[in-house]
Design a protein around this nucleic acid. Structure first.
Lengths: 192, 192, 192, 192
DNA sequence: CATGAATGAGACTTCATTCAT
DNA sequence: CATGAATGAAGTCTCATTCAT
């Protein structure tokens, strides 16, 4: 079990590093295993094919995101706190993993159905839905929408904002401003 | 000239059809040319490489989108009309080209920088910015944000909503509801 | 000793079952061991290499054949009885092990020299030669040929007949007819 | 067309030579193309996969066989002539292509159904059936069997004899004797 | 402009075998 | 005796691109 965990992680970390450096197009299984220091065949003991690396990376990143968010859960007790928290952490993560994130989008929509995406996002959604419900009860958050949609649009919007900032250069300014503008927009939609 | 136009279009249409049917993974230049009824080498007379097909498709779709929107430009003279217009057309287009749209995202983020994306979106953004500015003057739209951000977030949000509806099955309900929920959310953010 | 016998047989039976079901192409050592319920490495405690499974199966089948024939040895005391016996048992065995038989031919001619085949067939040949000699003395079987050739051609012919019937569909009719036609042909050649 | 024929033949000849020399196990497409002097991908322009080389070789050999037999067709006008002709040519071809023949058996039964075999043999069978029918009318050949079976068993038997002589060493003597013994056996079965 | 046969690099994957436990 | 994770060589095949016609 320990060993298994180790090799899997070695491989996943190696893959993430390689893709970060060389981009996805040129990333090959041989590079992953060379970097991880294992044999070619070992890769296929932990991933059924090269493609399987894609959702694995996505899961890793998103679970990291959720972890960080949950660490600051107390801040989410108020509407403003929740939104600022989501924005800050989404921006931070997007900056950190910028190359991998766009690779994951590409890879998953190329190789998998969107159901795979939903699966990966589920825990994140569920957490947010809980928060929103309790804030609706407190009268801090709009009750005019179903919570599922509210959660979905909120996450989608914040991620779009972070990506627009870090991946594209469409609106190139400082992070501060981008976050402020985004907060203004989201809070109007979500908060009462 | 006529011929050139024709072959280019034949090739582009063929590529779009092939990708729609067989998915991106299996789409190959040989399929494009077979479908278009031209020789293998002919492809390279009109596209410098296979990758060039990606932004070509994206441009085709987005210019179609802009065309449709401009046809209903009068409706955009009021805030509500503008948002409903954007939502309806974005949903319609996303439904029509669902596979191609995710292919374009994937392809562009794989092969190109996001600048290429911005380039393609520019005319759309510019048109929207104009509309928003004039609605801000009329006091129908929030003035608390820079119009560039407003436009960007509005488009990003509406596209997210359409994709969440048609590509993923996360929130599976009828289109009507999805559009209503989305309108509610966006209008709170954008309109006064 | 018990254990060793058991594991060897488990492995051999598993291999036979796997090859029967999935064909030779996909049959792998890992399938053999999975089916046999032993570890990967255990295979190599009983077979020096994967190839060794081939003559082992061939031997198993042919010894089974000889066993069945010897059970009916009394019938072989007359020419007609001998030939009918050979035909019936060869047909029965070919039907039962049809896939394995062609696999054995293939495997042995791929991996081994034909000497290996001869070795396997030897006991069967020797038994038949004895029978034929005694029938020659009784004047029931042609004496115009060396008994070795007679035995060889007789077996070869009968096996060809059974395989033509069960493996190929060249001549597709009922078993009865095929056996009758074959008997007619062989008996003309062999009996007086 | 000329070119196509040429490359196909180059490849087929190269493959036959390589298999003859190194055996089938080690024969690889890379060797085929190196020997043929063409690029790796070119192989797949003429054969859909490596396996396709197997029936191609079988067809080549059997059509050669039929060609040679038809050259001596006049001899087939009498029963004895027909059988001697078949025996001689089968022995000659088996000697010449001994390695390839066993490879073809193995390959076809491994990768293809026996129907493929029948397909390849069909012209040969049909020719023989014609001959046998006309000899039955002349009263030179037994009429107690259906001609299809007669042809099938005759060919099967003669091929078995040739293979027993050249491939196995079970009965190792001179070719002359083997042919004589075989003729004796077959003629008893077939001729009146 | 158009053709399409030919190219060839290199990616993915399989699987028999080993060996430390 | 038994295990099974790890190995790594080697093979098949794909496909974007070229170029002589």
């Amino acid at each position: 079990m320990r060993t298994k965990e180790n090799k899997y992680d070695q491989l996943l970390n190696a893959a993430m590093a390689v893709i970060k450096e060389t981009g996805f197009e040129k990333a090959s299984v041989s590079q992953f295993v060379r970097r991880a220091g294992v044999a070619q065949g070992t890769f296929y003991l932990y991933f059924s094919s090269k493609k399987e690396i894609v959702p694995a990376i996505a899961e890793r990143i998103l679970s990291e995101q959720l972890l960080r968010i949950k660490k600051r859960e107390k801040e989410a007790e108020q509407g403003e706190g929740l939104l600022r928290l989501l924005i800050e952490e989404t921006f931070a993560l997007t900056e950190e993993y910028r190359d991998l994130i766009s690779f994951c989008y590409a890879g998953i929509s190329l190789y998998y159905s969107f159901e795979r995406w939903d699966e990966i996002y589920r825990p994140y959604y569920e957490w947010l839905i809980e928060q929103l419900k309790s804030l609706q009860e407190k009268g801090e958050v709009t009750s005019g929408m179903k919570t599922e949609y509210l959660a979905n649009y909120t996450i989608g919007l914040i991620e779009h904002g972070a990506e627009a900032h870090y991946l594209s250069q469409a609106v190139q300014t400082d992070e501060k401003e981008a976050q402020e503008q985004l907060y203004y927009f989201v809070s109007r939609a979500v908060l009462l």
